[in-house]
Amino acid sequence: MKKAHAKRQISPVKMAAPLALFVIIIAVWEICVSAFHISRTILPRPEVIVRQFVQNFARDIWPQMQFSLWVILTGYVVSVVIGILIAAVCSQFKLVTQSVSPLIILFLVTPMNTLVPIFMLWMGFNPMERILIVILQTTPIIALNTISGFSKVENSKIELMRSMGATRVQTFCKLIFPNALPQVFTGLKLGCIFSIIAAMGADLEIGKSGLGYRISEYSSLTMTEMAYGTIILVALMGNIMFEIVAKVERKLIVWLK
């Protein structure tokens, strides 16, 4: 008998719908700007944005994009590792969870922009500083979600492991971790968002390099077309990062209806 589960089909409607919406938005945008004679410093025309952006990409954008990508990705990967490790330790020792949770939430809630000036006093303009900020902002959200995933295990499953005399490690690897995967991926996806926000925020505060810095520079020089273009680029980067994680999630988590 063949496998019973169906492969998820991506219907053409599903792909076409967001594209269609996108085209409509661009069209309306163009029309509005021309019809209402909106100044280019407030809302530039999409056509000009694309043209100027492509023109300046190689010289102005690409090096900063490389830098920002490096900051975001390094920060993200380190956050994932640390976040899951913290959660793993917390799941074994209730006391650790109780003492560490408020601290994690504190980091999550404090806007990094308030701490950045302090870091600048310590580290000056060291590029590692930005990675540190990304880590500080991203690790908590991953850790919290993973802790939540690790702690929500059905009692009956724990009893199942106990009925076989499984060790703590076996119970963790075979039950607690796989059971937590959906929640872990929620944290990983949120982490994508947080790491980009943190990186852009750090750029704005510290300046000198990075896409966030570029955006603020273009704004102050009223090169609005380039500013818009860069913002859209950052949004696209975020989307792609999110989609990659979502794709991994779909590959790994096959058992949910």
Binding site: S156, K157, E159, L160, S163, G165, P178, N179, W255
Partner: peptide, 22 residues
């Protein structure tokens, strides 16, 4: 009953207790 001795038993629970991801 110590863990090693539990190998001599096979336990079936009230509600199906299968691991959903396997």
């Amino acid at each position: 009953i110590p863990p090693m001795e539990r190998r001599d038993f096979g336990y079936v629970f009230q509600q199906d207790n299968l691991l959903a991801w396997r």
